[in-house]
């Protein structure tokens, strides 16, 4: 009786018809402060709706990999990707375009930070990291993993796992800071913007943890639009979208990312990211 009741319920639930209008869907993971995502990015959606004249919806996701999957499966048509996830997404959906990047993303960088017990001084020369414990950020992060690992391996000439006595993936820039500050790892790699805003807000004790090296500049976050939007939303849609993004001037909207403004970008800008990812074995 119970079984049949529940199975009937389940059946009705699978057969419930779903209606899906042509909604332009996007996703974004900011590199810091993920609180109130839906509320903040709904405002971005309203702005795009106004500029584009189509229904726009924001879908929150938890990871770069989830964003790439949603993009590939056409569950989102536009995404605010990190450098690496953008490259992954455009490889999986050929014909997709990077159309805009943050002003800061033209010359992004990572900081290497060290616990105060580590006897390395801040320098423009690459530090001798041999034998220390080290934490990256999230596994798919450009500024927390990809570029730091590349610079480490290129400068020291060995694989990361041969250099460090222990390697971790903290999962997030603010956790990298917390773990190095607590000494759980001696050294860590962190997005420079996240570090600067943590210092500014007094969330980090700079007598416990300090910057010892900064990477050369590289391109990072960008807006990527999916191949095929012109067929769905009309020709000229991509250009309209690009203009809307570049003209986003409202500081409240920009603070969600957080970026000063958006500037033009194209796929070629991210070729260095792709070759770095291939060099360290993250892409085939």
């Amino acid at each position: 009786m119970l079984f049949s009741r529940i199975s009937l319920l389940l059946l009705s639930f699978i057969l419930v018809p779903t209606v899906c209008a042509q909604t332009f869907t996007f996703t974004a993971i900011p590199d810091e402060n993920e609180s109130q995502l839906q509320t903040r990015f709904n405002k971005v959606a309203r702005y795009l709706e106004q500029e584009l004249g189509v229904d726009v919806k924001y879908v929150p996701v938890k990871s770069y990999a989830a964003a790439v999957t949603a993009f590939r499966n056409n569950q989102v048509q536009l995404a605010w990707f990190g450098g690496l996830s953008g490259v992954q997404a455009r490889r999986l959906v050929p014909g997709s375009d990077a159309i805009a990047q943050g002003y800061e993303d033209q010359f992004f960088k990572s900081f290497f930070i060290a616990h105060h017990s580590v006897e390395l001084v801040a320098s423009s020369n690459f530090p001798n990291l041999n034998g220390y414990t080290f934490t990256f950020g999230s596994k798919g992060s450009t500024s927390g993993r990809l570029m730091p690992q590349f610079f480490i391996e290129r400068n020291i000439g060995k694989q990361a796992k041969e250099i460090f006595s222990r390697i971790g993936f903290s999962g997030d820039h603010s956790r990298t800071i917390a773990q190095v500050e607590a000494g759980a790892y001696q050294i860590g790699a962190v997005n420079y913007k996240v570090w600067e805003s943590a210092v500014e807000k007094g969330l980090v004790d700079t007598s416990k943890v300090r910057v010892i090296w900064e990477t050369p500049a590289y391109p990072d976050y960008q807006w990527t639009v999916r191949h095929g939007v012109e067929q769905t939303f009309g020709s000229g849609f991509e250009a309209k979208l690009k203009a809307a993004l570049l003209n986003m001037k409202d500081p409240e909207l920009l603070a969600s990312f957080p970026r000063l403004s958006f500037v033009e970008a194209e796929n070629q800008d991210y070729e260095p990211i792709e070759s770095v990812a291939i060099a360290i074995g993250l892409l085939d």
Binding site: E32, N33, E34, S35, P60, V61, K62, S63, A66, G171, D172, S174, R175, A178, L203
Partner: peptide, 23 residues
């Protein structure tokens, strides 16, 4: 929620990961 379902874990994981301990 840790991987994106709209349950409590969605916000719980973010809050702890990003050090928003009051939340």
């Amino acid at each position: 929620g840790f991987i994106g379902m709209p349950t409590l874990g969605f916000y719980l994981e973010t809050a702890f990961r990003q050090g928003q301990y009051s939340e």
